[in-house]
């Protein structure tokens, strides 16, 4: 691993002053689950690492007038043991349960989950985020069985975030701080499909820190369902998170978001609208799931993921009302 300067600030202002104006100058460290892997492989070689775990205001889960505030450094284990989250947001709990191993749940943070880099093996092997060679995508013509089915040139990796789809379904926002102030962004806009190799897959700028996540208090039936190759220690193959606003037994409005199928979490607005006024049952859920994956454009080796994403949507819908 390349040597770096270590900073351990105690306040957010101090931390923000230690960041760089371009990527590669400084990386933010919370649990380190992803960052250490990136640094060991020389995918990230920051000159400075800024540990934000010592900044008290970035922790904690609290009820606010608008909903629930989750500090960026809250660990997956802390989230799982929060009564506030358990009672209102099963979609988040179910996503957290999928994050592999007690040790990683003890260290990994929710902010880190949102900011983690893609698992694309071309990216992790040093071919860059878009894995282009001589103007052509190595993914589109190569080993792409775990890649996007909702990808568009030039981005075919899948967003690795476990919480992203659930937070989007719940209508959550992230708060991003820099020395010039803070901005709030819907989680749906936090994830972006990069157009060039110099872009990132998230809207965070090099001089910003993700400080907290704000989940609105609206009452919904919500759930996450993950399809995985094995239960232990791997990212899911396809997931779905849903949030349903109900009028008695009928859906007033719905949000359906699929994970691990595109360079960002993928919303399915048409499928969600088709649920309005309906009671969720096997047939209704199956139909909405088929609509959700209608626009999928699988690559040469990953057509199987279309069926998995469909199953995830159906099962998430049924889980939400069970």
């Amino acid at each position: 691993m390349q040597a770096f300067e270590y900073a351990n600030p105690k306040t957010l202002q101090e931390a923000l002053g230690l960041l760089g104006s371009s990527w590669g100058e400084a990386d933010v460290l919370a649990g380190g689950t992803d960052l250490l892997g990136l640094m060991k492989e020389y995918i990230h070689t920051p000159k400075r690492v800024v540990n934000i775990k010592g900044i008290k205001e970035l922790g904690g889960i609290e009820k606010t007038s608008a909903g629930v505030r989750i500090g960026a450094t809250v660990t997956v284990a802390e989230l799982l043991s929060s009564g506030l989250i358990k009672s209102q947001f099963p979609a988040l709990i179910q996503a957290a349960q999928g994050i592999a191993s007690m040790q990683i749940r003890n260290m990994g943070s929710i902010g880190g989950d949102l900011c983690q880099r893609p698992r694309c093996w071309y990216f992790r092997s040093g071919y860059g985020l878009l894995a282009m060679k001589d103007g052509k995508s190595l993914v589109a013509n190569g080993e792409n069985r775990y890649h996007a089915i909702f990808g568009r040139a030039p981005a075919y990796f899948v967003s690795a975030s476990s919480f992203g789809p659930a937070l989007i379904a719940l209508g959550a926002k992230v708060k991003l701080a820099s020395q010039s102030g803070t901005r709030e962004l819907p989680v749906a806009e936090f994830f972006v499909a990069p157009a060039t190799e110099d872009d990132r897959e998230i809207a965070l700028k090099p001089n910003e820190i993700l400080t907290e996540i704000l989940v609105p208090a609206e009452t919904t039936r919500n759930a996450t369902y993950e399809v995985r190759q094995k239960e232990a220690l791997d990212w899911p193959l396809a997931t779905a998170s849903v949030a349903l606003k109900m009028d008695g037994g009928k859906v007033r409005s719905a949000e359906i978001v699929m994970g691990h199928v595109g360079p960002t979490p993928v919303r399915a607005p048409k499928a969600a609208r088709s649920l309005t006024g309906k009671t969720i049952n096997e047939t209704v859920a199956e139909k909405a799931a088929a609509t959700a994956v209608k626009g999928a454009r699988p690559l040469s080796q990953n057509a199987y993921k279309v069926q998995l994403a469909k199953a995830a949507v159906k099962r998430a819908l049924l889980r939400a009302v069970s």
């Binding site: 270590y6 380190g32 284990a77 040790q103 003890n106």
Partner: peptide, 9 residues
């Protein structure tokens, strides 16, 4: 808390 000491500075 149990942690993986290979993934911590």
């Amino acid at each position: 808390k149990a942690v993986k000491a290979c993934t911590m500075f």
